[in-house]
C-alpha cells in the first residue's frame, strides 16, 4: 500500500468520497489505495483535481455511481471511503 499522506490531507474540510450525500460534489484529492488500484481509477477518470458528483446507487445505497470526467463509474463503499475529496469552494481557492 502506498499512503500518500501529503500535508493537508487532514484539513478539516477534507472528507471521504463515501461520506458525500447524493447530489453533492467534491474535488478529488487523494487515494489511500495501492498504486495499481489508484492507477486504474485514474485511467477511469478519477484524477486528483477533477470534480466528482454523487449520482444514483444500487439498493441500500451501495454501490454508488459517481459522475466524473464525463463518465459514470460505480464504486463500492469500501473503496470510496479510501478516496479523499475537498469541498468544491476550497479547492477552487
Amino acid at each position: 500500500m502506498i499512503f500518500n499522506f501529503i500535508s493537508g490531507n487532514c484539513t478539516p474540510e477534507s472528507a471521504a468520497l463515501a461520506d458525500l450525500a447524493v447530489g453533492e460534489r467534491g474535488i478529488l484529492y487523494d487515494f489511500s489505495l495501492s498504486h495499481d488500484v489508484a492507477e486504474y481509477l485514474m485511467n477511469l477518470g478519477f484524477v486528483p483535481g477533477l470534480e466528482v458528483t454523487v449520482a444514483n446507487s444500487g439498493p441500500g445505497g451501495d454501490p454508488r455511481i459517481y459522475r466524473v470526467d464525463g463518465t459514470e463509474v460505480a464504486l463500492r463503499k469500501e473503496l470510496s471511503k479510501l478516496i479523499t475529496v475537498l469541498p468544491v469552494a476550497v479547492a477552487a481557492y
Partner: peptide, 9 residues
C-alpha cells in the same frame, strides 16, 4: 482479500 467492484456505466 479485496473484493472490488469498479464498473463504468
Amino acid at each position: 482479500k479485496d473484493a472490488q467492484f469498479v464498473m463504468e456505466m
